[in-house]
Amino acid sequence: MSQNKLFTVLVPIISVFLGLLAGAIIMLVSGFNPIEGYTALWNGAFGDSYTLGETIRRSTPYILTGLSIAFAFRTGLFNIGAEGQVIVGWLAAVWVGLAIDAPMYIHLPLAIIAAGIAGALWAFIPGILKAKLGVHEVIVTIMMNYIALFVTNDIIRNVLTDRQTTTEAIPASASLASDWLQSITLYSRVHYGILIALFAAVIMWFIIQRTTIGYELKSVGYNEHASRYAGMNVSKNIVLSMVIAGTFAGLAGAMEGLGTYGTISVMSGFPNMGFDGIAVALLGANTALGVVLAAFLFGALKEGAGEMPTGAGVPTELVDIIIALIIFFVASSYIIRWILLRFKKEGK
C-alpha cells in the first residue's frame, strides 16, 4: 500500500479514536463514568434488534447527505447547502405523497423522484451562479438553506395545511415503510430507504470511477485551468456536480418524509442532516464506501446517544461534541500526517 493510501485510512481511524478519547475525558471531568457512558452508547445503538433497526434508520439519510457533500467535494465544490436541499426534498416528497392518488408502483417512485428533483433544483442555483458569475458556492448555499427553511415552513402552514404545524400522514402507496423490516426489528422505524441509500452509494462510485463524466468532474476538481485547456466544459461540470449532489441530498429528505415520519412538520431550526453530512463525507475521505461506513458510525453515535442520559446520566450532546472534535481532527490531518511521519523517521 502506498504511503498516501495508508494515510487516507489511518487519519480517519486516528481521528475517531481521538474524538472518543476526548469524549471519555469530558465525561471523567464532568463526573461521569466513561465506561458506563460508552456502554450505554453501545447498548443504545446495538443493544437489541430494535435499536439496531433505529441505527440503520438514522444512518440512511446520513449516507445520502454524505454522498452529496462528497460528490461535490470531488469537483472542488463545498456543498454546505445539503441542509436546505434535504428540506426541499422532504417537502416535495410529502407534497407529492399527499397530492396524488395512484397505485404504489407509480406513486412511490414519483414521490422519490420529486424529492430528487427538488434537491437538484435547489443546488442548481448555487451551481449556475458559481459557473457563470464565479460566486462562491459556500455563501450562496448557506443563504439557500435559510430560504429553504423559511419557505418550507410557510408552505406547510399555509398551503399543505390550514395553519397547522404538521401535515397529514402520506398514504401507504407513497410510503417506504416496510412491515417485514419492522417485524424483524421489534417495530423500529427502519424502512426500505436503506436500499436506496446503498444503491446511491454504488451509483456515486460508478459515476466517479467508471464514467467519462466522473473523470471530467474529478479533473475539474483537481485543476480547473488544465481541464479547460484540455477542452472540458468547466461551467457545465460545475453545474452538473452541484445538481447531482443536490439530488442525493433531496433523496435524503425523501427518506425522512416517506420513510421515517411520513409527514413534514414546521421546523424551528435545521434538522442538521446536511451539516452532519459534512462530517460523514470528511471522515469517509469523499469516497462512496468511506461515506457508507462513516454514516453508520455517526448513525450509531447519534442513536446510541439517546440511551446515555438514562443509562449513565450523560447528556446526549456529548456525542455532538465528539463529532465536532472528530471533524477538527480530520480537517487538521496535516498535523496528524506530520506526527505520523515523525514517528516513522524515528522508528527507522
Binding site: 463545498f78 462530517a279 456525542v319 455532538d320 465536532a324 480537517a331 496535516y334
Partner: peptide, 18 residues
C-alpha cells in the same frame, strides 16, 4: 494546521452548541 477554514468553521458551530 492548514485545515479547510470552512470545515473548521462548521466544526466550531457544532462544538459550541454541543
Amino acid at each position: 494546521f492548514h485545515a479547510s477554514q470552512v470545515v473548521s468553521g462548521v466544526a466550531i458551530n457544532m462544538l459550541a452548541l454541543g
